[in-house]
């Protein structure tokens, strides 16, 4: 199970890293999503992999699984979900206003002269 999970997280991270280096903003957003999935799984696994145990040290239970990473993952999911929604809207507005989905490298001279 460890090998499967570790290689899975590795593969998702690799896909995410590849995609965030693309030229268009849509693959970049997908890449960020993949990265956030990878990090959520990673955080989850950091409490060690335990199967069929309660997340609390209950009397009578044979053991417990660490509840803290689960709380961390919950927070991380909420934040990354909100951020992804924001960046999707941002990319969409950028596409509608500039007519291009490309992640451009603006020259700084423009900020000084053309618009504000």
């Amino acid at each position: 199970m460890e090998l499967l999970l570790a290689s899975g997280i590795g593969a998702i991270t690799a896909v995410g890293l590849y995609l965030i280096l693309r030229r268009e903003s849509f693959p970049v957003i997908l890449g960020l999503t993949f990265l956030s999935y990878a990090v959520n799984l990673f955080l989850f696994a950091m409490g060690r992999l335990v199967v069929n145990q309660p997340p609390i040290a209950a009397p009578g239970a044979p053991g417990y699984t660490d509840p803290l990473p689960q709380a961390l993952v919950l927070t991380a999911i909420v934040i990354s979900f909100g951020m992804t929604a924001l960046i999707v809207v941002l990319a969409l507005r950028g596409f509608l206003e500039t007519g291009s989905d490309e992640v451009r490298d603006e020259t700084q001279g423009q900020s000084g002269e053309a618009e504000r």
Partner: peptide, 29 residues
């Protein structure tokens, strides 16, 4: 439009930063 394009860069780089932050937190924990 200029702010939107620059804002996309800014949000993207910070999302990558946040992901790194979580990886680091996970390892340390």
């Amino acid at each position: 439009p200029h702010r939107l394009v620059a804002g996309f860069h800014y949000v993207a780089i910070n999302l990558v930063g946040s992901t790194l932050f979580l990886f680091a937190v996970g390892l340390i924990y």
